[in-house]
Simulated assay, not measured.
Amino acid sequence: MFIDTHLHIIDRSALPYPWLSGAADLDHDFLYEAYATEARRCGITTVLHMEVDVDPAAMQAETDHVASIAKKEGSLIAGAIVSCRPEEQGFAAYLERQKADPFVKGFRRVLHVVPDDVSEGALFRENIRRISGSGLTFDLCTLPHQADRVTALADLAPDVQFVLDHCGVPDIRSDAFEPWKAGISEIARRPNVVCKISGVVAYTDAKTWTAQTLQPYIEHVTASFGWDRVVWGSDWPVCTLGGGLSTWVAATHAMLFGVSEAERSKLLFANAQRLWSL
């Protein structure tokens, strides 16, 4: 049993994705039906959709589009982490609307595509604090050099549950282990941060990586955060850049060899069930 906490649906006929023009390998439709067929074969039973950085004017439209897929009989999708703009004045009203929608499980604002000082702004930080008590999580998608931004936000809002995406996006391709390792250790000291072991195959040399390539990164994350503060995600379709969903699932199983059944269950589904009430 797997809960996939990080699925992206790309449907260019339904929504605008400005960033795709600069990402040729992903500038295609990646629809739910294709994902679901492979996911079921891999043992994935429940899925959270992760926002795909659509045009800001289409943020609500993206949530509505994914919700319509979730309502179809047999759908794996159980909720959504939705896009947001905490740096803007309209966030407070947007937050109230999302709190009223049980399909919405949390927020994400990708921080490595904007200047670092965006997350340091007074309005951004005030709005992050507003999430306290809502039961909604906040995903942080940052690069290793931005570890201090993660810790600053976690310290700023200790009652907000943060989720660090993709093991903090290590540069595995360049074997840049040490600077990433130090940042992860520091972030893990914040009890209100969970780490998402998701899609790291996309950061490898797609032709040469093996499970052993990834093992030190996964072991450092689990040692730093502990098995109660890790969740699993596919990052489909980004994981196709490193072999695809089935390959990432197989590598996950290989890296969990020797791990206790209780620890495996926490990573693969139990922590996600608890965190997002799935």
Rank of each mutant, 00 (worst) to 15 (best):
F2D: 00
F2G: 00
H8K: 13
I9T: 13
A14V: 11
L15P: 02
Y17C: 01
L20Q: 08
L20M: 04
A24Q: 13
D25V: 07
D25M: 09
D25P: 11
D27E: 10
H28K: 15
Y32T: 07
E33D: 14
A34N: 13
A36M: 15
T45D: 14
H49W: 14
E51D: 15
E51N: 14
V52L: 04
D53S: 12
V54D: 13
V54A: 14
D64Y: 05
A70I: 06
K71M: 12
K71V: 06
K72V: 10
S75Y: 09
I77Q: 02
I77G: 05
G79F: 03
G79I: 10
I81R: 02
I81E: 08
V82E: 07
C84R: 10
C84S: 15
R85H: 12
E87K: 02
F91A: 01
F91R: 05
Y94C: 01
L95M: 02
E96H: 04
F103A: 10
F103R: 02
V104R: 01
K105T: 07
R109Y: 09
L111R: 05
V113D: 08
V114A: 06
D116C: 15
E120I: 01
E120C: 12
E126K: 14
N127H: 11
I131R: 09
I131K: 13
G133V: 08
G133S: 08
S134N: 10
C141R: 01
L143A: 04
P144D: 09
D148S: 12
D148A: 14
T151H: 07
P158G: 04
F162C: 05
F162K: 13
V163M: 06
L164E: 01
D165E: 07
C167G: 07
C167W: 00
C167Y: 00
V169H: 00
P170V: 15
D175A: 15
A176M: 12
A176V: 11
F177L: 14
E178V: 15
E178K: 12
P179N: 11
A182P: 01
I184S: 01
I184K: 00
S185G: 15
S185I: 14
E186C: 05
E186M: 07
I187P: 00
R190V: 02
R190W: 03
N192R: 13
N192Q: 10
C195H: 03
C195M: 03
G199A: 05
V200S: 00
Y203I: 10
T204E: 08
D205T: 10
A206D: 09
A206L: 11
K207C: 07
T210D: 03
A211Y: 06
A211Q: 12
T213A: 09
T213G: 03
T213F: 09
P216Y: 15
P216R: 12
P216E: 14
Y217F: 15
H220T: 03
V221P: 03
W227F: 14
V230N: 00
V231K: 04
W232D: 01
V238R: 00
C239V: 14
G243V: 11
G244W: 09
G244T: 09
L245H: 07
L245S: 05
S246D: 11
T247S: 04
W248T: 01
V249G: 02
A251D: 00
A251C: 07
T252V: 01
M255H: 02
L256K: 10
G258C: 11
E261P: 05
R264T: 06
S265W: 08
L267W: 01
F269Q: 02
Q273D: 03
L275D: 03
